[in-house]
Design a protein around this nucleic acid. Structure first.
Lengths: 237, 237
DNA sequence: CGTCTGGTTGATCTAGATCAACAGGAGTGG
DNA sequence: CCACTCCTGTTGATCTAGATCAACCAGACG
């Protein structure tokens, strides 16, 4: 956990436009900036822990963060991936409930902390902020219900392919040959945790979709050989 | 779909305290009441349909409503059960997205409709309303993520037992012999849809937990023979 | 009556879990 | 430099929860 005061401030934050703070005045932004704390964190570190009481919220400036739920038997699942421009932990703060998940760093990330008092302050002073939180929560809810529905109706294979397409939307690019490509930011183990599956099953699945010519895995590099067929199989959703 | 203007009005609505409208003034309540439409609906009817554009929100005055998601292959799942005192459809309305689920009546229900304009109006005039929606959304999100996590980490059997406990919390009572009891408000088919399983599997599961002496099923009547063992198996969550 | 719908049971099949072995780095420490 | 140990990932053999397909039963209802 490294402090990095120099790099960022809220008013010129490249991701502010996608956060709850987009409607703040220059004045308010300065206040936000004065009280925020910014950290560079690495894989294996945890922003907050399931079960802890919330003391503020966290803005992900860059990097990839996973929200992990662990049950009483030690079964563990990744509920959601969050990347730059999203705030996490707002639900626990605003509902005064303990965190339902832990937020763990998956790739090196810059994370800003905003303590409870400044958040309440902004909520009280600028009605737009509450609106933004509401919109954010509704969006998260709809995504969560979508994931839930998928988990109830689709096989691991289909959810795996869906995940691959989501990753492409978020991280995809065309390589030097013009092939659609993703550099996988997570481990096989974490793919499994996202799908409620075992790592061995993911290995076999990867093998299979490779043999079928859908995707080509080379370590962490994925080539999307036949994106149409993938889209078609998952039903374009 | 039957109109029933006589029975209810918002100011004396027995469930208003649990809705977004709890902070409204008498004046505002009257306005709400004038524009609302109240209906008595029966099983098989649908409040709104997945894919439609939202034109307002619905308050469930009494009864049980299920939110159903159907995917492109016709796989169907019940995402959530809603009973009296909850509003449904607010997410679609406030995010201007089409409904992600259909809302179907499971047991005879009184449902009130509030059209878009009155909702926006209340949101604009009374800041508490937005706050309530935010709290509601956060609560729904946390429940949805909980369900999702369970679906990723637990077997159908455990989720079935969990559902039985949820039903007991909502509908349970002690019968004449002092035994904890529930009158099941839904079909086997619907239990299956709630768990992402097949009805046959639910039948077998019921048979099994009966043979094990955990629960006793008599048509729609459930006796909780050994609640401790059930609680222990699902881990008290 | 026959016809439906909801529920149960049996036989069989399969996606994915589980258990075990092993291979390839990447440190780390001598 | 090698030996050693972690850790991630892959593969094989086997097992099992739950799906699927089919038959059948009971009550509701025209």
């Amino acid at each position: 956990m490294t402090n990095c005061k120099t790099t960022h401030n809220c008013s010129n934050c490249p991701t502010r436009e996608t956060t709850e703070w987009r409607d703040l005045s220059e004045n308010e932004l300065t206040r936000l900036d004065e009280t925020k704390r910014s950290r560079l964190m690495g894989p294996g570190e945890t922003i907050y822990f399931q079960g802890d009481q919330a003391d503020g919220i966290y803005c992900i400036q860059s990097g990839l963060v996973g929200l992990r739920y662990v049950d009483e038997d030690g079964n563990s699942a990744l509920i959601r991936l969050c990347d730059k421009g999203t705030t996490v932990g707002y639900g626990a703060l605003l509902s005064k409930q303990p965190y339902a998940t832990s937020a763990e760093i998956l790739t090196p990330s810059v994370v800003c902390f905003l303590k409870r008092s400044i958040v309440s302050d902004m909520l009280a002073k600028n009605p737009k902020v509450g609106e933004r939180f509401l919109q954010h929560s509704i969006k998260d809810l709809s995504e969560s219900e979508g994931d839930y529905a998928r988990s109830l109706t689709k096989t691991v294979r289909l959810r795996f392919l869906h995940l691959m397409m989501v990753l492409y939307e978020r991280l995809g690019y065309l390589n030097e040959n013009g092939d659609p490509t993703v550099e996988l930011p997570i481990l096989r183990r974490e793919i499994a945790d996202l799908l409620g599956a075992q790592p061995e099953s993911i290995s076999r699945l990867i093998r299979k979709v490779q043999d079928e010519g859908l995707l080509q895995f080379n370590g962490k590099l994925i080539l999307y050989c036949d994106m149409n067929k993938v889209q078609q199989e998952i039903g374009i959703t």
